[in-house]
Nucleic acid binder design. Structure first.
Length: 713
RNA sequence: GCGCCCGUAGCUCAGCUGGAUAGAGCGACUGACUACGAAUCAGUAGGUCGGGAGUUCGAAUCUCUCCGGGCGCACCA
């Protein structure tokens, strides 16, 4: 509702500016005033035009208001302060808009509350041709945990951010493929393989037996017995092992490490088979962990297939042909195929390599570019960035090759596919997206920029423009938390604000451990409150609250703020938390339960009354004593605006904030107005309708955040 | 050395892309359960928005410069 009216006002003012001052395409900033006494929507447009028009802002504002006349949905405009134009909404009309504009269809289908799903399928459109609006087929890549150890809290932030963003895009009507990239042939997997084969001295058969045994034990004893947990420790031990012993021993171990890595990359040997066993088993565990949070994937592209299906070879040809890569003949990168870096590329450099000159004559004019990024080493092997370029060409459907596909993991209603060399003949199509979002932490900004640079250099500018590095800062531990967990913290680290999590050192909080801890805490609380409910019911509620707390915790921070993790904050269920919002939902449901009616019945009745008795509704929304109720409706009507901002800024935290504020204003309302004892029938319906709309909006917002709305708590 | 991010209340963070009186949560202190559940609400205290300069009618927000903190800058993956 608010978004629509903002656009309407903006259009009306633009028309005035065009007509009255001959200003075409002037941007009209629209904002929300600091308080309702300034109206509901405001614009400082007159202030910004003051210089251009050489007039006092106040005068301009008055002229605009006079020329505006009346605009549908608004009762009037006034000039305030230095030259603001404040607009006042026709409140009754706005309320009716909120009631009748409930959901984008897809969101409705995802609601678990039947009332919410049925309320309405209007032709509600969220993002209409906004400039820079995301394209129709998006590909979001997130999670991407090396399959050699258990997931930790840093991975949780990645997955929760990514999953939430997927929900937001889908709510806005986009087709989205969700990918989880698996680096199953990297050093991290190699290290665990070295651990099994050389530190522990196991054979392939023994590893196979161990993986099977872990699976059996995990089924009865829980995930602490699972393979990803044992790998967590083994990985840390192996990392330690490399730096132990005499110099000769260390050198031999390093050598072993790279031989193992190369054997895995090459494939078709026992070492590669061990790697395959481990990485597949650990990957399954990751998918299970993420499923606990409601996170699912469509496709799991693996590094092994990128290698075996020769993605790089195809990309290399294109990169050479377009002049993005050139062969360096002198300097420190002699014998390598290199690419000009995004930052360091001066105009001359770009022209030199991307232009007419072939690779042979490339590096002659001004000496070797020492800052260039090596893509193919002098020994002929390709670097990580090179493989990443190939993979991203595939994502945009520009590579001319495809993966093989086979089903890998079964969700309740569908299959998650994985890459393979052969694969099924009949499979869904992935890749060929028009916009991609890579959820990768901020430390990888440079490599990401390199890939974008390559795309741009190859002439794929549209693709480069729709390549978003969805960057976020890491989750670190507070020194106190690290000590609490029993890690030895160096003296100088104790005074630091946070300490980085490290899988290599086995230093961090495992995802499943945290989830377990949260469930245990919520379970204790639920057991104390819900004595009449069954064991299974209480467990379900506890899980919903625990996941709500965790997801909200990871989403309330904006992306580029480092989260200094602390159990005290993460295990909090009061104040700005997921459970706070869930509690507001439960309260509203209780009102309807006790009042023996339903939100949809109330809204239907209210909608009818509102269209018949407009003046009554108007009076219920006016006056000092009703300001808070009007504010609540106004907040409820902001959803599409917030969704728009979330997608535009790739920032799910805005929606988290919105949900919290709505719940907060509702709680205030709840204490002030006692609904069920209200004697005036019309007033009671109005109050119930207010609660119903807030319920609908809260459930919707929570669902987009991946948080369930419990029936009780 | 170069690049990116951060610095806002005791603590953890917002601040709608330059606007009106800088806001929340936690913690502290006061109050509110015989009414729809107190995982709640109302209130009080707490800020030279790291320092300085500049641009502007107007700066927490943009520019420059210091100070403090973090992270990247390999023919590793």
């Amino acid at each position: 509702m608010v978004l629509e009216l903002q656009k309407r006002l903006g259009d009306a003012i633009r028309a005035v500016l065009n007509e009255k001052y001959g200003l075409a395409d002037e941007t009209v900033p629209i904002e929300t005033p600091p308080g309702l006494r300034f109206g509901e929507i405001a614009t400082p447009v007159a202030l910004q035009l003051a210089r251009k028009l050489r007039k006092a802002p106040k005068v301009i504002a008055q002229e605009i208001v006079a020329a505006l006349g009346s605009v549908e949905g608004f009762t009037g405009f006034e000039v305030a302060g230095a030259g603001y134009i404040n607009a006042r909404l026709e409140r009754a009309a706005a309320v009716r808009m909120v009631v009748s504009h409930p959901f984008a269809g897809e969101i409705g289908e995802r609601m678990e509350h039947p009332a919410a799903a049925k309320v309405g399928h209007s032709n509600f459109q969220v993002s209409e041709s906004r400039p820079g609006a995301p394209a129709d087929h998006a590909l979001v890549e997130h999670t991407s945990i090396n399959p050699n150890k258990a997931a930790h809290i840093g991975h949780l932030r990645n997955a929760i951010l990514g999953d939430t963003f997927v929900r937001l895009l889908r709510a806005a009507g986009q087709k989205v493929d969700v990918q989880n990239y698996i680096d199953n042939t990297g050093v991290q997997v190699a290290d665990v393989v070295v651990g099994f084969l050389h530190v522990e001295g196991k054979t392939l058969a023994q590893v196979r037996e161990l993986v099977a045994a872990c699976e059996r034990r995990a089924a009865t004893e829980g995930h602490k017995a699972a393979i990803d947990y044992s790998c967590w420790d083994l990985y840390a031990r192996t990392s330690q092992w490399y730096s132990e012993g005499s110099e000769e021993e260390q050198a031999a171990r390093k050598k072993l490490r790279y031989e193992t890595l190369h054997a895995i990359e090459h494939g078709g040997n026992e070492t590669a088979e061990v790697a395959e066993l481990i990485s597949t088993a650990v990957l399954k565990r990751h998918l299970e962990t993420m499923l606990r949070l409601g996170i699912e994937y469509d496709f799991l592209p693996r590094e092994s297939e990128i290698l075996h299906l020769k993605f790089w070879e195809a990309a290399f040809e294109q990169l050479k042909k377009t002049g993005v890569l050139y062969f360096e003949e002198q300097g420190k990168n002699k014998g390598c195929w290199v690419m000009t870096r995004p930052g360091g590329g001066d105009a001359a450099g770009t022209a030199r390599h991307a232009g007419t000159a072939g690779p042979e004559t490339g590096a002659t004019t001004s000496g070797p570019d020492e800052e260039a990024k090596v893509i193919v080493r002098s020994n002929g092997t390709v670097t990580y960035v090179g493989k990443d370029i190939a993979y991203h060409l595939w994502k945009f459907g520009l590579l001319g090759r495809d993966f093989g596909y086979k089903p890998f993991f079964r969700y309740s209603d569908r299959e998650c596919w994985i890459s393979t060399t052969g694969g099924e003949a009949d499979h869904p199509h992935f890749g060929g997206a028009t916009a991609i979002y890579n959820v990768i932490d901020a430390r990888q900004a440079d490599p990401q920029a390199n890939v974008i640079q390559a795309l741009r250099g190859m002439g794929h500018t549209a693709e480069a423009d729709h390549y978003t590095h969805f960057s976020y800062e890491m989750v670190a531990l507070t020194p106190r938390c690290a000590v609490e967990l029993g890690y030895t913290v160096a003296e100088e680290d104790l005074s630091r604000p946070y300490i980085e999590v490290s899988g290599r050192k086995g230093f961090g909080v495992k995802a499943d451990d945290l989830i377990d801890k949260l469930i245990a805490a919520t379970r204790a609380e639920v057991d104390a409150r819900q004595t009449a409910r069954s064991e299974a019911e209480r467990q379900k509620i506890a899980e919903q609250i625990a996941i709500g707390a965790l997801r909200y915790f990871m989403l309330k921070y904006t992306r580029n703020s480092v989260i200094a993790f602390d159990f005290k904050d993460a295990l909090s269920f009061e104040g700005e938390t997921g459970p706070y919002i869930q509690y507001a939902v439960v309260r509203i449901r209780n009102i309807f339960r006790k009042g023996e009616t339903t939100p949809e019945a109330v809204l239907a009745e209210f909608a009818k009354a509102a269209s018949q008795r407009v003046s009554e509704l108007a009076s219920q929304l006016s006056g000092e004593e009703n300001e808070d109720i009007w504010a609540l409706w106004l907040r409820a009507g902001r959803f599409s605006l917030v969704l728009d901002q979330c997608i535009g800024a790739s920032e799910p935290a805005y929606l988290a904030k919105h949900a919290f504020q709505l719940a907060q204003e509702f709680n205030n309302f709840y204490h002030k107005h006692h609904i069920l004892t209200e004697e005036d029938a019309g007033r009671k319906t109005f109050l119930l309708a207010t609660a119903a709309v807030v319920l609908r909006e809260l459930v919707k917002a929570l669902a987009l955040l991946g948080i369930e709305s419990p029936e009780a708590m």
